[in-house]
Design a binder for these strands. Structure first.
Ligand SMILES: [Zn+2]
Ligand SMILES: [Zn+2]
Ligand SMILES: [Zn+2]
Ligand SMILES: [Zn+2]
Lengths: 149, 149
DNA sequence: CACCTAAATGAAAATGATTTTCATTTATAA
DNA sequence: TTATAAATGAAAATCATTTTCATTTAGGTG
């Protein structure tokens, strides 16, 4: 989603388009990595000191509720976020070295989902799928080779 | 895995089999739900007051490292744990109403994983998959029907 | 069985992340 | 421009997790 689309969605939902929110959205869009609140806060420091960490938290919650960003689940830190490129069903491939995220579509989990629903009596309404690994850049770098293949 | 198997693994790894650890393992085995440290601590209170929350944390970390339990990722609370029934590749179907978890095998994500690796240059080493929904019990209960179908 | 020792425990303090509170500022509509 | 509700930032409060350290204990040894 473009900054423009995001701005439109916020307006439609009755939220104000503040420069803090714009800045946070920009940081997310500019990064190909998953970022925590603290990461985003750190990246704002140069251009927008003055923006408080609280505002980052609040903005992320807002964007999340509005379905404007993706969430990523890594080992310990549950809460890292990602710019949602388009509003289609997709999942993420995540580099555990540098945090880079590649989106992909075509999970084809519907059949499995149906089978499970039938077998268990659950009404399944969504699924979480992620692949974890190392990107080519991290594979090539010396440091990563030494620490864990 | 049975309590017996778990105990054996701990011994093999040079850890002591304390009654606190036994109690925590029992709570996990007895529950068909995913539990946080605090959940486990609460369930210990009756039979084993005296066991400290710190010990729960430490024991979970230990069991985790030894591959004796499963982790589950839900919305906010990232860290909840689950008894690992068997040491085979499987995933979880989770009830968002009551926390009940059903294991399943046969994810068949290898082809997708290969395709992604080829397309992106990533070396993929694992994946996370979970289905979320409501179990039949929760579907039937009045409260759940009123709050969210 | 009694003894020894490293490992494990619990209480309290420390840390870190997230949320709440509240006075001040600001985007937006009239 | 003005009015107003929404948004912000600083500080305090809360909650989860980890560290510290003195004490206890499991499990091996004689
Ligand atoms: Zn990388
Ligand atoms: Zn999917
Ligand atoms: Zn349920
Ligand atoms: Zn799988």
């Amino acid at each position: 989603m473009t900054g423009r689309e995001i701005a439109a969605t916020l307006k439609r939902r009755g939220y104000k388009l503040t420069c803090q929110r714009r800045a946070i959205i920009d940081v997310l869009s500019a990064s190909g990595k998953h970022l925590t609140s603290a990461d985003i806060y750190a990246r704002l420091k140069d251009e927008h000191p003055g923006i408080g960490l609280v505002t980052v938290y609040r903005t992320l919650e807002l964007l999340q509720e509005s379905g404007l960003l993706c969430e990523v689940h890594i080992g310990d830190s549950c809460r890292s976020y990602l710019n949602k490129k388009a509003d289609v069903h997709h999942h993420h491939l995540i580099c555990s070295g540098c945090g880079k995220v590649v989106d992909f579509t075509g999970c084809e989990l519907d059949k499995l989902q149906e089978r499970l629903a039938a077998e268990t009596g659950f009404k399944i309404d969504n699924h979480l799928l992620q692949f974890m690994g190392r990107c080519s850049k991290c594979l090539a770098s010396k440091e990563c080779q030494s620490c864990q293949s």
